[in-house]
């Protein structure tokens, strides 16, 4: 059953990635050089809408808060994001869109994925050393925290005094407004 769901949701996600143009590195690079922000508008709208519906869904009991999964915040999240950003800008691929692009017949994406297997393996070998010798895994603001109260007791909220649904929906609305207001081209 779970594997069937993986096939259905995965197929839908890959289909969506391709239909919004995210599997085309040209669109990613043009977004990053602020020349064509269409894809950025797509991403912001997707984050905003899904956030609104997620928090509304949890409020009305349609979505189970146990499905919430907040990743830990630590120094390496920023550093890793920065390293990822370098490869992202050069290639126009991130892990998901790279694999999806390879499936649409892009050969450079196959080399991206092979390099990715190498990078993931290098990290697998270096993890123990990084953990023991650097502060990259030091938690930030308590680690696995969300801004809005998620209704899942495993995670703390940065704004515990305000109703989580209100914060979540308000943040989502902000993303939607930015998505609409963002011009299609800056540079």
């Amino acid at each position: 059953m779970e594997l069937l769901l993986a096939i259905i949701i995965g197929t839908f996600f890959g289909f969506a990635l391709n239909r919004v143009g995210a599997t085309n590195p040209e669109n990613i690079i043009n977004m990053l050089r602020l020349n064509d922000l269409r894809l950025m508008k797509v991403i912001l709208l997707a984050i905003g809408l899904s956030s609104i519906l997620l928090f509304a869904g949890m409020y009305f009991g349609a979505i189970d808060a146990s499905h919430i999964s907040i990743k830990t915040a630590y120094c390496g999240v920023i550093a890793g994001g920065a390293i990822l950003g370098i490869g992202f800008a050069i290639s126009g691929y991130c892990p998901g869109t790279g694999l999806a692009a390879a499936a649409t017949g892009r050969k450079d994406a196959i080399f991206f994925a092979l390099g990715g297997l190498g990078g993931a393996f290098a990290f697998t070998l270096l993890y123990g050393w990084i953990k023991g010798n650097t502060h990259l895994f030091d938690k930030i603001a308590g680690g696995a925290v969300s801004i809005a109260q998620s209704g899942n007791d495993k995670y703390e909220a940065l704004l515990p005094a305000i109703n989580g649904s209100v914060v979540g929906i308000a943040l989502g609305a902000i993303f939607v407004v930015i998505a609409v207001a963002l011009p299609k081209k800056i540079l």
Partner: peptide, 28 residues
């Protein structure tokens, strides 16, 4: 570039889909 992207993603504990999209959706 792929090497850097996945090394960075593993250091960060996630990538564009896990951290940015799913994470920001949950206000993480």
């Amino acid at each position: 570039a792929g090497f850097a992207v996945l090394f960075g993603a593993r250091l960060a504990g996630g990538c564009t889909s896990g951290h940015m999209m799913s994470g920001m959706m949950q206000t993480a």
